[in-house]
């Protein structure tokens, strides 16, 4: 009984956290970035300071911890096949490619996006030039994760729905 429930619960947590993480990634790229550009270009408008002060810290909290929970639940799901997946062995090639993409994305979140966003948010001291550079780096890492999410989701899905399409 436990052997059937545990993978289901792990998969459930993987989906819930993954939707939180990737949903916020798409929010940043499809909504917030263009909204901030429009707000900054709107002379006499309210500007984007409210988004930076009130929305961004909360979104980044769920974003970065959603990434961690997604990865941990995914690793638990792989279980004894963890090494086979990451070394792209036999039938684990598809999930392995998805797992590698997800891992690179997690490292991007914690290694590039979050450290640079801390400068943008003023949680880490930075002058205006450093903030501008941090904003650009965080933006490019976020766009890279959006790019990587496209094959990542295909390979995650293909590992259990469509493996027969691959030779």
């Amino acid at each position: 009984m436990e052997q059937e429930w545990l993978p289901l619960i792990e998969r459930w947590i993987h989906f819930l956290a993954g939707i939180t993480w990737i949903g916020l990634l798409y929010y940043f790229n499809l909504v917030q970035v263009p909204a901030m550009a429009a707000a900054n270009a709107d002379q006499g408008g309210p500007g984007g300071a409210g988004i930076t002060k009130y929305v961004l810290p909360r979104a980044l909290f769920w974003f970065r911890w959603g990434a961690v929970v997604t990865w941990l639940a995914g690793a638990a799901l792989l279980g004894k096949h963890f090494v086979d997946a990451f070394t792209l062995q036999g039938q684990h090639v598809l999930i392995g490619i998805g797992a590698w993409l997800g891992t690179i994305m997690l490292l991007n979140v914690w290694g590039i996006i979050w450290p640079n966003q801390k400068k943008v948010l003023g949680l880490k001291p930075a002058d205006d030039a450093e903030k501008a550079k941090a904003r650009r780096l965080a933006f490019l890492a976020s766009r890279t994760n959006t790019l990587l999410s496209i094959p990542m989701l295909l390979f995650m899905a293909a590992s259990s729905h469509g493996a027969g399409l691959f030779s």
């Binding site: 790229n29 490619i97 890279t144 790019l147 094959p151 295909l154 691959f166």
Partner: peptide, 30 residues
């Protein structure tokens, strides 16, 4: 040359190209 990551369309097209490359890699490995 413009960075494709500066636009949503460029990002999506790059993602689709990478998907095609990785499908070829998966087929070669399986």
């Amino acid at each position: 040359m413009k960075n494709p990551l500066d636009s949503i369309a460029g990002t999506i097209i790059s993602g689709l190209v990478l998907t095609a490359v990785l499908i070829a890699l998966a087929n070669a490995l399986m």
